[in-house]
Amino acid sequence: MIRQKWWKILCGVLLVYTFIAGFLGSVPAKPILNETIRNLYFHVAMWFAMMVLFTVSVIYSVRYLRTNNHKYDIYALEYTRGGIVFGILGFTTGSIWARWTWGAFWSSDPKQLGAVIALLIYLAYLVLRNSMTDMDKRARIGAVYNIFAFAMLMPTIWIIPRLMESLHPGGMGNPALDTHDIDARMRVVFWPGAVPGWTLLGVWITTLRIRLAILTEKKEDLHPAPNQARKLRNA
């Protein structure tokens, strides 16, 4: 699966479609948002890609604990890293979009909060892994934390919007995007194009990193140079 070509081509086709249709297709005319509503195809898709990558990472953590196969630990780590990259991109693009529509880079919107919490949790995962040198221990404890953190993150994302809404009664006055704002014209670009396209790109880059990590490890087994190789892998 990892080395097959068809899904990589599919990824390219979907993203090209997203870029072309995303700019040529017409969108609902909303006050304040105006043309920036097209950011949906790029910014919101980052979050979907991030969540998919984190979910895949947890699945591999579970598989690691069940099988103790070292390969799955590399998978879990690299999927987390990929998710963090998409998370940072999503967060940055969200801030930029928010600055020119809601008026500030940071407006303590529940979605922004949830995103920051997710990023902090997974950055802590990397810190935790780096605090250990023993490979088996690092893999096992990392997997345990990954599962625990993911299980805590899901209710967090569900709870926070409900608490924040009640903090600001009268509903947010800002034109936050929700599913009601997206009409059929946008949906045909967003769901079949942007979300799977960006997700596949994330998976693609992650699989490349996984293959590289496995190669590095094999090379290390052939020519052991423990300190240097470990430094390289942690970099």
Partner: peptide, 16 residues
């Protein structure tokens, strides 16, 4: 795959 791309484009046009 390219048939898929064409179909997606067509849907976009239809959903104008």
């Amino acid at each position: 795959l390219f048939t898929l791309l064409a179909c997606l484009m067509a849907i976009t046009l239809w959903a104008q």
